[in-house]
Design a protein around this nucleic acid. Sequence first.
DNA 1: AATAAATTCTAAATCGTTTAGGTATGTTTA
DNA 2: TAAACATACCTAAACGATTTAGAATTTATT
Lengths: 341, 341
Amino acid sequence: MKVKATSFDIAHRAGVSQSTVSRALRDSPLVNQETRDKIKAIAQELNYKVDKNASNLRQQQSRTLALLLFEDPTTDDSLINPFFLSMLGSITRASAQAGYDLLVSFQNLSDDWHADYEDTNKADGIILLGYGDYVDYRDKLSKLEEQETHFIRWGAPDEEHPGVSIGCDNFQGGFDITRHLISIGHKTFAFLGGADKHAPEFMARYQGHCKAIKSEGLPLDSTRHVDAISTEESGYSAVESLLPDIESINAFFCASDLIAVGAMQALRDNNVKVPDDVAVVGYDNIPVSRFTDPALTTVAQDTMLAGEALVKNLLLQINGEKPPAQLMPVNLVLRKSCGRT
Amino acid sequence: MKVKATSFDIAHRAGVSQSTVSRALRDSPLVNQETRDKIKAIAQELNYKVDKNASNLRQQQSRTLALLLFEDPTTDDSLINPFFLSMLGSITRASAQAGYDLLVSFQNLSDDWHADYEDTNKADGIILLGYGDYVDYRDKLSKLEEQETHFIRWGAPDEEHPGVSIGCDNFQGGFDITRHLISIGHKTFAFLGGADKHAPEFMARYQGHCKAIKSEGLPLDSTRHVDAISTEESGYSAVESLLPDIESINAFFCASDLIAVGAMQALRDNNVKVPDDVAVVGYDNIPVSRFTDPALTTVAQDTMLAGEALVKNLLLQINGEKPPAQLMPVNLVLRKSCGRT
DNA sequence: AATAAATTCTAAATCGTTTAGGTATGTTTA
DNA sequence: TAAACATACCTAAACGATTTAGAATTTATT
């Protein structure tokens, strides 16, 4: 049976006290350089590693962040929204960079996650990642705040939700891409994506969309609005529901790339040519969007930057500061699906 | 400033000793039911949560698993192989189900991850997830084993690598899909995917491919082998390199769906029709494969099952058992890209 | 009524660190 | 030469739980 070396073992071998070992390993100037080197050598030889449980207990911190993923409960269990995954990647890397470990967990409504990480000292802070819909969790967020838990939420900064949040400028994204569609000649639209309080991000995109229509002098009824959640299936059936008067639509603005992928599939199955008969644009710039046929014009959220911002902001909170909410900029990615670029 | 309640606070209020509190909260029969209820009520009221650091330290375990993701270092940093992500999802859920937290971390060659989790008592066991290529890490795996660290590797069970592993039957997958291609009339092939020691999974698929060709009585030189790593770009250029004599190829067997997506893109760009001019099949059944044009025929690995198997196996190890390696079955997913089904 | 057994609780040791404070040395300063 | 000060180390007390051993109380048995 393997038995782990402790700082006492090292102390014994080095002929010093255990506290000196602890100090030496953390390069404290309170211990002589020679002694330090000797202790470190022995530590290495014994394959010694600081026990994080003991260390964390003593220091009352864990140098660990918890990432809580809130998935659209309607989605198939095994699939994860690619956009989240991209965020997950950048968050993982950003926290590693900062010297923090990352606990990942999927949540659903029933869990009382609001207490389970920081309260137990398993994490120093929590990152909440979901598609903007925290409406049902609002009271839990309040509780988090009340408990002075450090947490940050991915989503639109607004007053409705307690706590700090970071999100991309969905309004601007919806505005920009719609303006582009108009600028290349499209005049009538369909917006695919549920824009109610349960999807504040989709809502903002839709509002940006409408604003652009107005500001370009088009009549507001030049766009139609169809419900859809962020899945391919949902995009597919959204298009199906619009087939009867498909000729009256110049362009589809899909609230997410997944919706767009499904939408294009539906169009293809019904012999509607993209972009010749109708334009399609998406939102998120997920990895596949480059490889659809035709390649999808979309709005890119810089997930690298966003992940870093989330982690940085959270760490500031942990260090006792009160960092402000943040709105991240957004970029158009012009590809073939929208027609003449 | 928030100050956390400890078991002493509860003991004080309840008028019992702290040890009684500890027992009561863990439903020990050593404490009277009435006392238990009272203590639990007080705990709830004070919003008490067991400090995991203290608890773990005392119990010498962490009830946490660490997932180490090894990415093809050639891949863009921000992108993650969708297949891994799918595994990540199922592993996360499986460990949550088992009452374990999950630490996620991306690794690269330079890190000395081989010591960093279990040795520090941050995790009770480690899951290694990569595209089969652990060749360069073999000595690190040995070290893990030597240290009696609990770990499990995703990949082909073989004697070359130390430790237990679970993987899908790549040979069978390659065999099955090739046989299907032959059964619907294809006679000449190209295999896209580096099949050297750095990609044992691709290698096994290739070997299954060749076996099927032989067993169906076709000449072995009816297949060509082109190097590619698991990215769309790589698939794209692999196809480009074959363009000169594209007419001599009936079907492309891509070692992964990502390669297939890139390959189909390249074929489209060069006016080669799939599946009319040439068939294309992939491997992995990633989410997009259903939405490519045409939909991709591929080999599905049941990631749900695989994630559960990994976690279950690791937990057995943690509990002192010696579970065997496992080969998971594989399923053909027939869609349009391979031609007549 | 005395003894044994069962129940319920307490005290203290333990996990492996970190860190405040103390104690020898030797070196400088007035 | 004693006071003042570094230097290099050590002792011991946390941190907050779990758990062993044993004490106190109640209940059962003879």
